[in-house]
Simulated scan of single mutants.
Amino acid sequence: MNPDQPVEFHAPCGHLISAPADRVGQEVRCPHCHQVVRVPPPDVPYASAVPVPADAVEPLALTALYVTTLIGGLLTAGLVYLVMFDEFSESELVSITPLWFFPVVFGLYGFASQRLLRHIATGRARTLGEAARVSIDVAGYWAALVLFPFLVLKWRGSLLVSLAAALFWAVLLWLFFALLFPTL
């Protein structure tokens, strides 16, 4: 074994990573999935890529729904706040906020839940909460606010999770407007 030649192996996520030969037997973090893995000796066959089970991939129609609502919500927000802002009163702006806010939340949580559900299907997590905690460890604790619904929900369908998350944020939005703008 050449000590200058890196050891290449597959991480649990299936990505091929390499580590310096002097790290054999030590732990390294995969740059793709951020899991800590032990660098195997070069003479031991490395693990093959972990395939995503067929039942882990949700219908393409759901992904298209998430993309459409996310883009539609962002375009609506841009139209309202960048182009037509001066045409609306404060109360009108408050009343049309759900028209862009909920599509953004629904689409964003749809994508996030699909990704977290793939973690479960590939064995990197057992529950949505565990998958969310792994994501929080990677992204930082600020992500806990965004991922909060995933920490408490037990469902395994991205559509239900997205709807529940949208409801969660609807209540927070209502409280925000009720407390900050009670006269609107």
Rank of each mutant, 00 (worst) to 15 (best):
P3H: 07
E8T: 14
P12F: 05
C13I: 01
C13K: 01
C13Q: 00
S18Y: 07
A19E: 05
A21D: 08
D22A: 11
R23M: 14
G25T: 05
E27T: 15
E27K: 12
V28T: 06
R29Q: 15
R29D: 12
C30A: 05
P31L: 07
C33Y: 06
C33H: 04
Q35Y: 09
V36F: 09
V36P: 00
V37W: 02
V44Y: 08
P45K: 12
A47Q: 13
A49I: 02
P51I: 06
V52S: 07
P53S: 02
V57A: 05
V57L: 12
A61W: 11
A61R: 12
L62P: 00
A64W: 10
Y66N: 08
Y66H: 07
T68D: 04
T69K: 05
L70T: 06
G72K: 00
L74G: 06
L74E: 09
G78M: 07
G78N: 11
V80G: 04
Y81N: 15
L82S: 14
L82D: 13
M84E: 14
D86K: 11
F88H: 13
F88Q: 02
E90C: 08
S91T: 15
S91Q: 14
E92C: 04
L93G: 05
I96E: 07
T97R: 10
F101T: 03
F101M: 08
V105I: 14
V105K: 00
F106C: 03
Y109N: 11
G110N: 03
G110L: 04
S113C: 11
I120N: 06
A121H: 08
R124K: 13
A125V: 03
R126P: 00
A131S: 14
R133E: 15
R133C: 06
S135L: 13
A139M: 14
G140N: 04
A143I: 08
A144W: 06
F150E: 00
V152Y: 08
L153D: 06
L153A: 08
K154P: 00
K154T: 14
G157L: 12
G157E: 15
L160K: 09
S162H: 01
L163A: 10
L163Q: 01
A164K: 01
A164N: 02
L167G: 11
L167K: 02
W169C: 10
L172T: 08
W174V: 10
L175P: 00
A178F: 09
L180I: 09
L180Q: 10
F181I: 01
F181D: 05
P182K: 02
